[in-house]
Design a protein around this nucleic acid. Structure first.
Length: 923
RNA sequence: AGGCGCGUAGCUCAGUUGGUUAGAGCGCUACCUUGACAUGGUAGAGGUCACCAGUUCGAAUCUGGUCGUGCCUACCA
């Protein structure tokens, strides 16, 4: 074995082996256990969120597989309509052409080529994480089977009037030229202005003042509204204003949508370009005047002077023209929320178009109930509130997109725009008796990618035609995902799955936090603070990292800033930590909070932990050279307290891990494992085994027993850790298991350790605690008194408690080795003791004779410190016990515990004071 | 505006139903290459648990408020 753990080669080898041997497919006949992957974008790249969520899903998957469940982690990708189309369009533009130029058919062909070319990047990256996904069942939202489900669902919903086509305002992206759903709009506060314009009142010399943040929409105004009870304006209601620049006369209406306190209390109403105005317009039967083209420039409905201008140019010109007319009252700086497309970043226009919608209310009701009645549970539970809040106020879902990449809407129109929905043109013709003389054209639009994602749990499992897997694995057990897509995906899956299968899609939803950078910032390409999980596994130089973070920048002016920040955070680049260390970092950070600041220091710590495991294994293997072990029954009679202790500690650990898995507390699991392996197995048990193994000849049976325990606890620990650290555990297990006569092909198919309370051994734990206490006591004196660790020393032990004497007999060899002692002498309570540095362990006095070793003043200081500490404790506990209310009210056990504590501290402080006085007399 | 969350050691975070003299890792200090490991070992320093008030025998933990901070939803013409 190498002296340090080298993850690089063995990770790739093991993953390949597991995959080739088909270990990821469900097997056996245990209970089914299933997780579906949140489908990543097929042409995308792995990010930290994937890393985090896959670490968790893989731990759950491997855990249940080892528990003997038939376990399926269903893999697949989605087609990411807008994102993918944008990438391919950019490629076309770079090549000097465009999608319009090459046409729909060729464009879609190009996208498929791009998918084939780049689609396996992300799936290869998922493999690097060790994810035990069943690749034999890989699905893609655009593949034939899934597309058929999408089609069926669309048609069925249409036939039930749950999908309809409507002409209304949508969120329109004037750059991508498509509608998007309200979830795809991000509104952030930006600096803008509030323009106050005077609108002349018709047939009078008066005017009123409206306030607007979007002057250009003036061209589409069809009324001015005031509050019905606003005394300033009641006399104007029913009159008209002459709309400047347009030569139109529009009514002044009363509507309590208007907030009299805000602005001037007069609102211009532009029904075609504002969601609220649209509603006002409907109530008052106002004209809807669309003044924008799809690209958001001014169209021919507007006065000639403005036609063809971009919306922002038009704004400028209109303000100038208003000012020229003397109608500009004032301009005030104003902060407002500007809606932008989450993909394009441009300002979204409310725009009147025909789109397809899902009427979600009737789907939402059962989906709400499923969570209310506990059929589906969120972990942590408080996310249910977020879900309810959205679901109870849900809006119809705009599902059509003006894109070419996606599931084309199965709807055809005749010459009169009458719509027919069906699987294909032939079946539409047949169903509606349309002869060949009637021209039909298919709807140009495709469906929102989330529409197909909403069907993911059942479409990937073969519903509705091949239901073997569906019958076995649906509902799935748990969905692991980020809170940012509860609305986009989780809620919609629940609605659609209930509707079509009558089942919930999953029993639990484990919501992870969002991985942020070392400063708590959200990671994003534009901020240049992305960490690539693969770079943490393989390492990356600072040069490559800088190049990666500043490549293809949307905002090149940020380059210097990004470089500076990157150099500050990673002056030497990033070391190669390996997959297991990265995964363990994710577990350790997977607590219940919603932000996860990624801390590379922890990854380094867990890399070191891997090395610790590696070296402990080396130690065990070295000690097995030329030796063999039998079974537990054979060795048990020769077990030392240390052997029984570590066995007992293992059981407690296994029990805790079981609880952590049930409660999804991977952070506690990680800490528990590290604590056991490092602080108990390595720090103590391995050390305690040394005197026994090195004195093999004196007691060969004891040495053999120790070897057996070293080996078997290591082997069991590897199985306990395997769901979290698949690679190192496999590699080491392959070397260790045969020595125990275990013949398995892979640790991942071995049983997970089931806690066995029979192995708990309180007596052994007490014995070892005693030994540890004595050793730590001596080390403490050495450390504080500056005695070289190389120097062997003599100690005396003294106690009134005979148990201490008995314990010394069984512990002598351990103490000698671990505390580096020359002699250990027992003193009876009344025997005279040499002048010594003293440390107490319970009633036991640990005495290190001072002659030539210890400075009196230093020992006095040390004792003073110890006494002061005890006095603090006595004061606190004594105060408690002196309080009658505490003694009367607190549970008896609590009071008894406090009394015991007090008694111990008092006797300790007495003993130390005596020592202190003896030293004082000496000085 | 409403909702949710957070504020514990220099940093990143645990802290179960109130019962500890408040924990871990990293970092820091001192010493040490001893036959698994310097990606290591040993010992140690470091916190009035944001603040205030309340409930209680007892509060990091429960209640109310204040301050700071982050996010989500709705919306402001």
């Amino acid at each position: 074995m190498e002296k340090t753990y080298q993850p690089q080669q063995l990770e790739a080898n093991w993953y390949k082996t597991w995959e080739e041997r088909g270990y990821f497919a469900p097997q056996g006949n245990g209970d089914p256990y299933c997780i579906v992957i949140p489908p990543p974008n097929v042409t995308g790249r792995l990010h930290m969120g994937h890393g985090f969520q896959h670490a968790i899903m893989d731990a759950l998957t491997r855990y249940h597989r080892m528990l003997g469940c038939q376990t399926l982690w269903q893999v697949g990708t989605d087609h990411a309509g807008i994102a993918t189309q944008m990438v391919v369009e950019r490629q076309l533009n770079a090549a000097g052409t465009s999608r319009q130029e090459i046409g729909r058919e060729d464009f879609v062909k190009k996208v498929w080529e791009w998918k084939d070319e780049s689609g396996d990047i992300i799936t290869q990256q998922l493999r690097r994480l060790g994810s035990s996904l069943d690749w034999s069942r890989e699905r893609f939202t655009m593949d034939e089977g899934l597309s058929k489900v999408v089609e069926k669902v669309f048609i069925d919903l249409y036939n039930e009037d749950l999908i309809y086509r409507g002409n209304r305002l949508v969120n329109w992206d004037p750059k991508l030229l498509t509608a998007i759903s309200d979830l795809e709009v991000v509104s952030e506060e930006e600096d803008g202005s509030m323009w106050h314009f005077r609108y002349p009142i018709a047939e009078s010399d008066e005017h009123l003042v409206i306030a607007t943040t979007r002057p250009e929409t003036l061209l589409g105004d069809s009324a001015v509204a005031v509050h019905p009870e606003d005394p300033r304006y009641t006399h104007l209601v029913g009159k008209f204003v002459d709309l400047p620049l347009c030569g139109r006369r529009i009514p002044i209406i009363a509507d309590d949508y208007v907030d009299p306190e805000f602005g001037t209390g007069c609102v211009k109403i532009t029904p075609a370009h504002d969601f609220n105005d649209y509603e006002v317009g409907k109530r008052h039967d106002l004209e809807i005047i669309n003044i924008l083209t799809k690209q958001a420039s001014i169209n021919d409905e507007a006065p000639e002077a403005y036609r063809g201008l971009d919306r922002f140019e038009a704004r400028k010109k209109i303000v100038e023209d208003i000012e020229e007319l003397g109608l500009l009252e004032k301009i005030e700086p104003h902060k407002l929320k500007v809606p932008r497309g989450d993909r394009s970043g441009v300002v979204i226009e409310p725009y009147l178009t025909h789109q397809w919608y899902v009427a979600v209310q009737s789907l939402a009701d059962p989906a709400i109930k499923a969570v209310e009645n506990g059929d589906i549970e969120f972990v942590p539970k408080n996310w249910e509130n977020t879900y309810f809040a959205w679901m109870r106020n849900i809006q119809d879902w705009c599902i059509s997109r003006q894109l070419w990449w996606g599931h084309r809407i199965p709807a055809w129109y005749d010459e009169n725009d009458k719509v027919y929905v069906g699987a294909d043109e032939a079946s539409v013709r047949a169903a509606h008796g349309l002869g060949d003389d009637i021209q039909l054209r298919q709807d140009e639009d495709v469906l929102d990618t989330w529409f197909s994602s909403a069907l993911w749990t059942f479409s990937t499992l073969g519903w509705p035609d091949e239901t073997e897997f569906f019958d076995k694995f649906h509902p799935t057990n748990v969905l692991v995902t980020g809170f940012d897509i509860i609305f986009f995906w989780v809620a919609r899956m629940i609605m659609m799955t209930l509707k079509f299968t009558g089942q919930i899609p999953f029993k639990k939803v484990y919501i992870t936090g969002l991985v942020r950078d070392e400063n708590g910032q959200k990671m994003s390409k534009s901020k240049g603070n992305i960490l690539d999980p693969i770079d943490l596994i393989d390492g990356i130089s600072i040069e490559d990292l800088l190049a990666k973070r500043t490549a293809d920048m949307m905002q090149p002016q940020l380059k210097q800033k990004i470089e500076k920040a990157t150099k500050a955070s990673f002056p030497d680049g990033i070391a190669a930590y390996g997959t297991d260390a990265l995964r363990f970092t994710f577990y350790s950070l997977a607590s219940t909070g919603r932000d996860i600041k990624f801390d590379l220091g922890r990854t380094e710590g867990y890399r070191n932990f891997c090395n610790k495991i590696w070296n402990a294994s080396r130690y065990v293997l070295m000690n097995m050279e030329g030796k063999s072990v039998s079974d537990a029954a054979h060795h048990a009679p020769h077990f030392s307290p240390a052997d029984r202790w570590i066995t007992s500690r293992f059981e407690s650990t296994a029990k805790q891990i079981e609880e952590c898995m049930e409660s999804y507390r991977f952070d506690i699991a990680a800490q528990t494992l590290q604590e056991f392996v490092w602080n108990e197995y390595c720090d103590w048990y391995v050390e305690l085994s040394k005197p026994v193994l090195w004195d093999d000849e004196a007691n060969p049976e004891a040495a053999a027993a120790a070897r057996f325990v070293l080996l078997s606890i290591l082997e069991k620990s590897l199985r306990l850790m395997h769901p979290f650290m698949p690679y190192i555990t496999e590699e080491v297990w392959q070397r260790i298991a045969p020595l125990l006569g275990i013949n398995g092909d892979s640790i991942m198919l071995q049983p997970f350790p089931i806690p066995n309370a029979d192995n708990l051994d309180a007596q052994a734990e007490e014995s070892i605690e005693w030994i540890k206490g004595v050793i730590v006591g001596v080390r403490n004196i050495r450390g504080e008194m500056d005695i070289s660790p190389a120097k062997t020393i003599n100690v005396f032990l003294r106690s009134e408690n005979q148990i201490d004497k008995q314990r010394l007999d069984e512990a002598r060899v351990f103490l000698q080795k671990l505390a580096k002692l020359n002699s250990i002498d027992w003193l009876e309570p009344d025997a005279p003791a040499p002048t010594a540095a003293t440390q107490l362990h319970g009633q036991l006095e640990i005495l290190v004779p001072m002659a030539g070793l210890i400075d009196v003043a230093a020992e006095q200081a040390r004792l003073d410190k110890e006494i002061a500490k005890l006095e603090g404790g006595i004061k606190a506990v004594g105060g408690k016990l002196g309080n009658a209310k505490f003694v009367d009210n607190a549970p008896e056990a609590v009071v008894a515990k406090e009394r015991e504590k007090l008694a111990e501290m008092e006797s300790a402080v007495t003993a130390l004071r005596t020592k202190r006085e003896e030293l004082a007399a000496l000085a």
